[in-house]
Design a protein around this nucleic acid. Structure first.
Length: 327
DNA sequence: CCGACGAA
DNA sequence: TTCGTCGGG
């Protein structure tokens, strides 16, 4: 089920933040936000992050606290949001969809029963979907801060990977190993945590195992992806061996007398996802900080103390690069 | 969810 | 080498 097995195959190296200065990173917004949502809500309790109207706005705090990290290292983030249809086509991956619906039912039940914020956050993570309020308020805040936002036709992660291949950005930024399957040439992980980030190199991954992109995806399907259970008994090593031996997924199915439903559709989700080339954005960031602050603390009633330092750091980081440019 | 570790 | 479980972030 989990695709942590992919890590075993990935060519990963540490990279210093200093080396990322001046780079542009397409951030998988869902993935990034979720990381901040869980940690923010989990460690501080939810009351400060819920408005009088009962709206969860921890995302605003997460965004204000998370942005400085990029800017202080001279990086330009481009946030890529999922498009309207994040659900997969019903006939393609029916089982997966049913699973999500079960999760969503759980979530709804928990809400009705007034479950605590932590429980709800956990359930929300499993539905793989952020609330509409979270999506729109994050976007509005980013726009006030003049941070580029891209709307993906479908999956944000696929769009981010595509943008790296296109060359409109330098890296994809996500914790998800799926970026490799989506063919993102260079992916940064651990941008939110304390130490240096990790760099996943797509071509190096293929070269290390002497696989093609298609074969890497096929290996992942054998091991199990977000969209299918893996074949029991096949892990990273065996999967690679089988692909090298038999060539492609269907040859492996035949040789090993096994099968994965919807394999063809799952394969296409990685090899040929719905993405767009229409990605116009400006990497010069000139935020309206007073307006952003008013939006967060005024309109959404977030205590000023929660975001004061974050806004300060954003301001300082940007005036610093301005000075650098000048001298 | 993620990485680590012990069992088969 | 894989799988299941358990503890941490």
């Amino acid at each position: 089920m989990g695709n942590a097995d992919l890590r075993q195959l990935a060519a990963i190296e540490d990279v210093a933040f200093d080396d990322l200065d001046g780079s542009v990173v397409a951030i998988d917004a869902h993935n990034w936000l979720y990381r901040y949502l869980t940690t923010t809500v989990k460690f501080t309790g939810s009351s400060a992050y819920t408005t009088g109207g009962g709206e969860e706005v921890a995302n605003l705090i997460g965004t204000v606290q998370g942005l400085p990290k990029f800017l202080e290292h001279g990086m330009t983030p481009v946030f890529v949001f999922d498009g309207g249809t994040t659900e997969l086509k019903a006939d393609e991956v029916a089982e997966r969809r049913e699973q999500r619906e079960r999760y969503e039912d759980d979530l709804e039940t928990a809400r009705e029963e007034g479950a605590d914020a932590e429980t709800i956050a956990t359930l929300e993570s499993r539905t793989q979907r952020l609330t509409e309020t979270i999506r729109t308020t994050t976007r509005e805040l980013l726009e006030l801060l003049d941070v580029p936002v891209i709307e993906a036709p479908a999956e944000g992660e696929a769009q981010a990977a595509h943008m790296v291949r296109q060359g409109s950005v330098d890296y994809a930024g996500t914790e998800d190993y799926d970026a490799l399957l989506l063919g993102a040439p260079l992916t940064l992980r651990q941008l939110t945590s304390k130490g240096d980030p990790e760099l996943m190199d797509f071509e190096a991954t293929l070269a290390t195992h002497d696989l093609t992109w298609e074969q890497l995806v096929d290996a992942a399907i054998l091991m199990g992806t977000d969209f299918n259970e893996g074949i029991s008994g096949i892990g990273p090593k065996t999967a690679v061996t089988l692909l090298r031996e038999h060539g492609d997924l269907w040859a492996v199915f035949e040789a090993e007398d096994c099968h994965v439903s919807n394999a063809d559709a799952i394969r296409r989700l990685f090899l040929d996802p719905d993405v767009t080339d229409d990605v116009d954005f400006d990497t010069a960031i000139e935020p309206d900080i007073p307006a952003a602050k008013a939006y967060v603390t005024g309109e959404w009633e977030v205590p000023a103390s929660e975001v004061e330092r974050g806004f300060e750091r954003i301001d300082e980081a940007l005036s610093q690069t301005g000075l650098d440019r000048w001298t």
